[in-house]
């Protein structure tokens, strides 16, 4: 009856808590549904604002890039770009922190974490599956936001070149590629938040603490980055290169800061995730 490792019939460590079952676990949660629904709602709200609202005249502090707002209604691509522009700073951070920060901490707070570990789901596997699913949901959120914006923006404002005054118009086909590039860089940049939130998630039983902590640290980093007097060390801040995706809009694409930003994000995410695994595979689960 028992196989060599003494496990119950049908038990294989590699088959416990599959990505599919974890995906379903998260899908049934209200916060997942609300977060994804908001990704659909936001472009609609922006569209409604453009339709019924007046024209604002603040330049959003973007300097040469402020015209992104003025050009938002010039086509579907620009509408999508604007939607990303307004959500990149905070909204996406919160959503990613939610998916990655809540995943372990909420199981701990419900008490279901100890039953998963007693199944037993190997700890490293539990973390890996949770991380993959959290990242997948984050990616789905990002794509939902961009996809919805592109769809309704194109339906309303038409399919045209990607416009900005920092460079010449970019033909629609290449514009779409650039938009995908921007999405890719945003996704890479958000890995830092994902890493931080995940590390906090294995360190606390309070899901809100993990999510809020990650967002808070992210904001602190952004504020420090605003203080130019700090000089060189600012380059080490995880949020320093968060705006580098704007370089994708110019022709030719300015990839220097994107490369540096990717290095920074990958390094931070690796450190945070390594710490998370190191910690969780050793800690006493007392919740």
């Amino acid at each position: 009856m028992a196989v060599l490792d003494g496990a119950a019939t049908g038990y294989r460590p590699g088959r416990t808590l599959t990505i599919r079952s974890e995906w379903r676990r998260q899908a049934s949660r209200r916060r997942t549904q609300l977060a994804l629904a908001f990704m659909v709602l936001l472009p609609l709200v922006i569209l409604a604002a453009f339709q019924f609202g007046g024209t604002g005249d603040d330049d959003n502090g973007g300097g040469e890039f402020s015209n992104l707002i003025e050009l938002a209604t010039s086509g579907g691509l620009n509408f999508t770009l604007f939607t990303l522009f307004v959500s990149a700073g905070f909204l996406l951070t919160v959503v990613v922190a939610l998916f990655c920060g809540d995943t372990i901490a909420s199981e701990a707070s419900w008490g279901s974490l100890r039953y998963l570990l007693a199944v037993p789901v190997p700890r490293a596997r539990l973390l890996a599956v949770k991380l993959v699913v959290a990242l997948a949901y984050s990616a789905v959120a990002l794509l939902t936001l961009a996809g919805t914006a592109l769809l309704i923006g194109t339906l309303r404002y038409g399919w045209g070149p990607l416009r900005s005054t920092v460079a010449a118009d970019i033909p629609a086909g290449e514009g779409l590629l650039r938009l995908l590039g921007i999405l890719g860089y945003l996704a890479v940049g958000l890995l830092v938040v994902a890493g931080l939130a995940f590390l906090l998630s294995v360190s606390t039983d309070a899901p809100l603490g993990a999510v809020g902590g990650a967002v808070l640290l992210f904001i602190v980093s952004s504020i420090l980055d605003q203080i130019t007097a700090l000089g060189g060390p600012r380059n080490l801040l995880p949020t320093h290169y968060s705006d580098a995706w704007l370089g994708i809009l110019s022709t030719p694409v300015q990839s220097d800061d994107i490369v540096k930003g990717t290095i920074s994000a990958v390094a931070y995410a690796t450190i945070f995730w390594s710490l998370a695994f190191w910690r969780f595979t050793r800690k006493d689960v007392v919740s």
């Binding site: 028992a2 003494g6 038990y11 008490g111 279901s112 039953y115 570990l117 037993p120 190997p122």
Partner: peptide
């Protein structure tokens, strides 16, 4: 447990059913 030395995550844990420190369920389902 059945002669297998038990460490965290031992496969032999699969032959063990447990209720420790109260129930733990997903509240939303």
């Amino acid at each position: 447990v059945f002669g297998h030395r038990l460490v965290p995550g031992s496969p032999v844990l699969s032959r063990l059913g447990a209720l420790v420190e109260g129930p733990g369920f997903l509240p939303h389902i």
